[in-house]
């Protein structure tokens, strides 16, 4: 008996999801050039401040966690036993 195929077993669906996601990203880049944001800090009004911040923050987060924190703190699973 073959198992029922699920939504993301089909590579086409994964591809489609990613396409929608990337399209949404593209759309989200547009408004900063058209509308004005009411903000507290000057840099919040720079176009694409939030997209760039979100992207860079997460890349930095992952790189620091992987290349700095993990070598420092990772021990074998039974370390405390």
């Amino acid at each position: 008996m073959t198992e029922k195929k699920h939504l993301f077993d089909e590579p086409k669906n994964v591809r489609r999801l990613l396409q929608v996601f990337f399209a949404a990203l593209g759309v989200l880049l547009i408004p900063d050039f058209i509308f004005h944001k009411h903000t507290y800090f000057a840099w919040e009004e720079w176009p694409e401040f939030y997209p760039v911040f979100g992207f860079v923050a997460c890349v930095v987060l992952v790189l620091v966690a992987k290349y700095i924190l993990r070598p420092l703190v990772m021990r074998r699973e039974s370390y405390y036993d």
Partner: peptide, 28 residues
Amino acid sequence: QLLFFSALAFTMLLRAGIYPAEIRATNL
């Protein structure tokens, strides 16, 4: 915008194989 582009970072790091693979470990 902040959240979608955070998600983009996750997607790209994962597909590039940079996202730290889960490892059975104890973290101090």
